[in-house]
Design a protein around this nucleic acid. Structure first.
Length: 850
RNA sequence: GCCCGGGUGGUGGAAUGGUAUACACGAAGGACUUAAAAUCCUUUGCUCGCAAGGGCAUGUGGGUUCGACUCCCACUCCGGGCACCA
């Protein structure tokens, strides 16, 4: 019989599904009845969004890598839950539907079928019965339910502010979705628009999101990215009074020590105070023009300008430096960001490069107050801002103080006069959650004009707004013909009367539904809970104890694998939502994933895969040509899973050869009974059987350790080394060979299953072999077999390898030195010289220094 | 500009501070074949040498060490992330 991957892969995929091999036990009660309660293990991978081209080989790379880990855990005796689903709601799916002129709901059905077909082909141990799609009303009912909880608890709020707007996608975007001023999805330059939008208060959780990073076992680079994104700054808010005006300008600074060098104040163009000061501003027209111009600029334009600073002085008013009492000018400039700190800064051109450039351009005084050398202040002439540490100069009683110390001293001095206050600020902004698009979960809120008028509402701070009562969820997305984005700052649902016209849940008068939909990242912020709900056909409720029991058994997720590109998107939101749900008492944990590992990027022939380059690998054709097992193993053999790999067509043959050799070897083992009792003794006293055990158990150890560390490439290579060895063995027993099949099983599940079943013919069959190899026990290595009796002792002379010989394992330093010095080569190399020093590393080498 | 990765044969890549180049691909030669494919065997970092054997090589330059791909310093190139965050 020849190895025919296509045939056996289809066969086993069917059998697995029929026998429910990969379906875990969900209810604790059921499990108790069984003789052995298996330890649950939730093995999660980031679910894909069903894209235009079908499953990308990069997806397959990620899924296979995650699956190997899951299969490994299953064989180690865990009850593994490895679900899969589709993240099909959202702009990406809708954009594709628009492009090909289909309705997103119809396209979803097509994509769904295609994706599930492809996902079945790759041979993962998915729990298919719990699959889910985010556009399924059963699912988004709970997306909406979460929104309602956020609203009721005050974590969702509505606010008008300058937000990111993508003119091509015709919707607002979250900060996390803007990459270098461009839309994450389509690459169009994002513009700022003043709009009223829904936000989630993720900033309230900034501190916890930051602190918890210490407690979770995640890829370090993701933690670093999150830390940088949240970016905590400790400083002070300092008041700069405006003469003849009631309110001072408040600035945020982390460098209170430089306060005596603050020679002007800058407000962001969006700063609210400017409007209030209108009557006192002499050049109001000019200021107004500048503000309008700045607001119209796209994010990308601002970045493109680079360090070229622009701004306008606000004439007619001055600010008082609270430290010096000096009156200093006030500017409006777009290098100051409205959304950070207080939206205003004190400019210290001598010690901040941006302020320095601005001051140079506008000829403003540059006053040095920090000097590297003290007490002899010979301050250098500045060519750029001096941002390093130093001692204060020209700062009254603080002169001579080291800057770190002065920071606190000055802040406290001003605090006593009520002119300053310590403050911690985060760079993280609140999560903008509403989208002016069609293909998403409608935001489940209703606005009632009557209630607003009478000051009623679910929340005191938001009169007129009501959550859709939970019994009315889901708010179904209506099937409308014209789903195209309007570009009018409103969703296409805003003109669908049968959708938005609704009775107020409170006063029953006619009211209006919110017509924006939720950001896709809300869909994916809780899907790991969804899979558990799917196990009971969506009959469970998050708030009920039945769900809670299930969650306590399975959550938090034990292992989560996905792409690093979601470091500050999905991976941040999902943590935030879990914390919020925990605080509301719905779940028992605040970190959803105990362990997260980011896989590397798969490239093709040294270049990134992209549609425009035309080098995107479609897994279908490779599976058709070589089989899923070969492709799986090839992908994993390319390089370390966490680093990625370079896909080259030529390499695949090596894996095909390897699997064919395994196939052949199995049959020769089955057909040729071992010649017992004929083991020839060797000169070292080790029989071929000892050698075989050693090779076998070393490999078991190596493969086990490598899988645990996701080093699949070296695990596969050690399997290859073992097979090379075993092919030379005259007497290979089937029981030993079966250990190899087990080691192979996570990587090449189909061929392993086929060979397992073939080797377990009834007359040979044992209990372990009746079922699937994937439920068989993962082999344990026996340290006794690995123990070496001799080793290769390396002999170095002055650090260079000159000789080597076999030595007994426990050889002493003296004995090793004696043997080494007696060797011909050593004598030659050492010539007449004495050995000055001898370094001996037990079990490794001896270095003779002459 | 800042923060992460990374630089090793013709290629993908291995190496707890201890034989650098495992494993695989490719290439060359051979066996089998009428022939080809497949398969199997041998060789394969560069270099000097008939050989035995030697010298040189892990981006560059220094350092620590008996010994450095591995640790430290400086630089350089490539990939990724963030980007006027006061």
């Amino acid at each position: 019989m020849k190895y025919n991957p296509q045939k056996i892969e289809k066969k086993w995929q069917k059998i697995w599904q029929k026998k429910r091999v990969y379906e875990p036990n969900f209810t604790p009660r059921q499990a108790r009845g069984k003789k052995k309660l298996k330890r649950p293990f939730y093995n999660l991978m980031m679910f894909p969004y069903p894209s235009a081209e079908g499953l990308h080989v990069g997806n397959m790379y990620a899924f296979v890598g995650a699956d190997i880990y899951g299969r490994f855990k299953r064989m180690q005796g865990h009850d593994v839950f490895e679900p899969i689903g589709l993240d099909g709601f959202g702009i990406h799916s809708e954009n594709y539907a628009l492009k090909i002129g289909k309705h997103p709901a119809d396209q979803a059905k097509i994509s769904e079928k295609n994706f599930y077909r492809q996902l079945r082909m790759i041979g993962n141990g998915f729990a298919w019965e719990e699959r889910l799609e985010t556009y399924d009303p059963e699912y988004y009912k709970w997306t909406q339910w979460i929104f309602v909880q956020m609203f009721k608890s005050g974590l969702a709020y509505r606010k008008k502010q300058a937000v990111n707007w993508c003119p091509s996608c015709k919707t607002v975007l979250a900060d996390e979705q803007v990459i270098a001023g461009e839309c994450e999805r389509c690459g169009t330059a994002v513009v700022k628009k003043e709009l009223e939008q829904w936000f989630f208060k993720i900033i309230d959780y900034a501190e916890r999101l930051l602190n918890n990073l210490e407690k979770i076992d995640w890829s370090e680079k993701i933690k670093v990215a999150q830390r940088n994104w949240i970016s905590k700054s400790e400083g002070a808010v300092v008041k700069f009074p405006i003469p003849n005006f009631q309110f001072p300008i408040e600035v945020f600074t982390t460098r209170a020590d430089t306060l005596f060098g603050a020679t002007y104040v800058v407000l962001a163009p969006e700063h609210s105070k400017i409007e209030n000061l209108k009557l006192q501003i002499e050049n109001w027209e000019e200021v107004k023009r500048y503000i309008a111009g700045a607001k119209n600029k796209s994010e990308a334009e601002r970045i493109a300008e680079g360090l070229e600073k622009t701004g306008v002085e606000i004439k007619g008013i001055k600010a008082t430096n609270p430290a010096t009492g000096e009156e200093i000018p006030i500017f409006v400039a777009d290098y100051v960001l409205a959304g950070y700190g207080t939206g205003a800064i004190m400019a210290v051109p001598a010690h901040d490069q941006r302020d320095f450039e601005f001051a140079k351009k506008f000829n403003l005084p540059i006053k040095m107050v920090i000097c590297p050398n003290y007490p002899e202040p010979k301050c250098p002439v500045l060519e750029r801002a001096y941002e390093e540490e130093g001692y204060l100069v020209a700062s009254n009683e603080f002169t001579g103080m080291f800057c770190q110390k002065a920071k606190n001293a000055i802040a406290e001095w001003l605090a006593k006069k009520d002119l300053a206050e310590k403050k911690t600020t985060f760079r993280l902004r609140d999560w903008l959650i509403s989208r002016q698009r069609y293909w998403g979960a409608p935001i489940p809120l209703i606005f009632c004009e009557t209630c607003r008028h009478e000051g009623r509402g679910e929340r005191k701070d938001m009169p007129g707004w009501h959550a859709v009562p939970e019994k009315d969820l889901p708010v179904k997305l209506p099937h409308i013909k014209d789903f195209r984005p309007t570009g009018t700052e409103k969703s296409p649902l805003a003109i669908v009367e049968k959708f938005f016209k609704v009775r107020c849940p409170k006063c029953k008068s006619w009211a209006r539904r919110e017509t924006d939909v939720c950001d896709t990242f809300l869909d994916s912020s809780w899907y790991y809970l969804g899979y558990l709900m799917a196990s009971e056909n969506w009959k469970l409720k998050i708030e009920n104890s039945a769900f809670s029991r299930l969650a306590r058994k399975w959550l938090p997720v034990d292992m989560y694998i996905g792409g690093a590109e979601h470091a500050v998107l999905h991976l941040l939101y999902v943590r935030f939502v879990a914390m919020a749900l925990r605080d509301l008492g719905f779940i028992h944990f605040e970190e959803p994933f105990k362990k997260f590992r980011a896989h590397g990027l798969l490239i093709k022939d040294g270049a990134k895969m992209s549609k425009s380059k035309g080098n995107v690998v479609n897994p279908d054709e490779y599976i058709r040509a070589y089989g899923a097992d070969t492709l799986r193993m090839y992908l994993m053999f390319l390089g370390p899973f966490e680093q990625g790999g370079d896909f080259r067509d030529t390499g695949i043959r090596g894996i095909t050869r390897f699997l064919e050799r395994i196939w052949k070897l199995t049959h020769s083992v089955i057909l040729t009974p071992p010649r017992r009792g004929k083991n020839l003794k060797r000169s070292f006293g080790q029989s071929p059987q000892d050698d075989l055990n050693k090779a076998l158990h070393k490999t078991i150890k190596k493969v086990t350790e490598d899988i645990e560390n996701l080093q699949y490439n070296t695990a596969i290579s050690s399997l290859m080394i073992l097979v090379n060895e075993l092919e030379k063995q005259p007497s290979l027993e089937i029981e030993n060979w079966k250990l190899v099949i087990k080691l192979l099983a996570p990587f090449a599940p189909h061929i392993a299953e086929e060979l397992w079943s073939q080797s377990a013919s009834p007359e040979r069959g044992r209990r372990d072999e009746k079922g699937s190899v994937h439920l068989a026990k993962w082999p344990k290595f026996n340290p006794k077999f690995i123990k070496e009796e001799t080793f290769t002792l390396i002999v170095q002379i002055n650090g260079k390898v000159r000789d080597l010989f076999e030595a007994p394992a426990g050889i002493s330093r003296e004995e090793a030195a004696r043997l080494a010095l007696g060797r011909e080569k050593v004598k030659t190399w050492l010539a007449e010289k004495e050995a000055k020093k001898i370094i001996f590393v037990p079990g490794k080498l001896i270095n003779i220094v002459g």
